[in-house]
Simulated assay, not measured.
Amino acid sequence: MNARREGDAAVQSYRRAQQRLRDGGKDVSSEQRLIRIEDALDALLDGLVKQREQIGSGVAVDVAGHTLAARARSRR
């Protein structure tokens, strides 16, 4: 469940970055464009952190499953 939640949060961050880059038009100032790019990079990096957390959650589930299976095998 944690992996899914983190994955969904990563997708939201990526979409926020994408939307921020699309905001405005060609008639915006260089300063406004720079601010949009900074905001998009911030959202992109946030998404990468959340994706890393998603991977960590998946690995934790894997380790728990293997540990339980090994214990069950040793009890036989």
Rank of each mutant, 00 (worst) to 15 (best):
D62P: 04
E53Y: 08
G24K: 01
V28N: 13
Q19A: 07
Q51V: 12
E31H: 08
A40D: 03
E53V: 11
D46L: 07
G7A: 03
A72I: 07
A64V: 09
V59T: 05
R71T: 09
A9H: 05
A64T: 11
Q51S: 13
Q51C: 13
Q51P: 05
K50F: 02
G58M: 06
D39M: 06
R5C: 06
R16A: 09
T67Q: 11
T67K: 08
K26L: 12
L44H: 01
R36S: 14
G58L: 07
V63W: 06
L34F: 14
V59G: 01
G7E: 01
A70Q: 07
R20M: 15
V28R: 10
D27V: 13
R76W: 01
S57Y: 04
E31F: 10
N2L: 06
E53G: 09
Q51G: 12
Y14R: 04
R36Q: 14
D46F: 05
I37H: 06
I55K: 09
L41M: 09
D8V: 14
Q54M: 13
L44V: 04
S57K: 02
Q54V: 00
V59H: 02
V28Q: 14
N2T: 04
R16Q: 05
Q51E: 14
S13N: 15
R33T: 10
G56I: 04
Q51K: 11
S30F: 15
R36C: 10
R5H: 10
G47V: 00
A17D: 00
Q32A: 14
A43E: 01
Q18G: 00
D27I: 12
A43H: 03
Y14F: 12
A60E: 00
R4Q: 12
A40T: 04
L45F: 11
A17P: 01
V59D: 02
R5Y: 05
S57W: 00
A60L: 02
S57P: 00
H66K: 03
V28P: 01
V11A: 11
N2S: 11
R22A: 14
G47L: 04
L48F: 15
A70C: 06
M1G: 05
R52K: 13
L45T: 11
L41I: 06
I37V: 13
K26S: 15
R16K: 08
A69W: 07
V11D: 09
A3Q: 03
A9N: 07
D42I: 02
I37Q: 11
K50G: 02
Y14A: 04
D8M: 10
K26T: 14
G25A: 05
V49N: 10
L34K: 12
S29I: 04
K26P: 15
R76Y: 02
I55E: 14
D46M: 09
Q19T: 09
R16G: 03
S13L: 08
A60C: 00
A40F: 03
E6M: 15
A9V: 02
L48R: 11
G58W: 02
L44N: 01
L34V: 12
D46Y: 05
A70W: 03
V63Y: 08
Q12G: 09
L68H: 11
R75A: 15
R22C: 04
S13T: 11
A64Y: 08
A40G: 07
G25T: 07
R73Q: 09
V63C: 07
L68I: 14
L21D: 02
V63R: 06
G47C: 03
Q19I: 04
A43L: 01
H66S: 03
L34M: 13
D42Q: 07
S30W: 12
V49T: 14
T67P: 01
D8E: 15
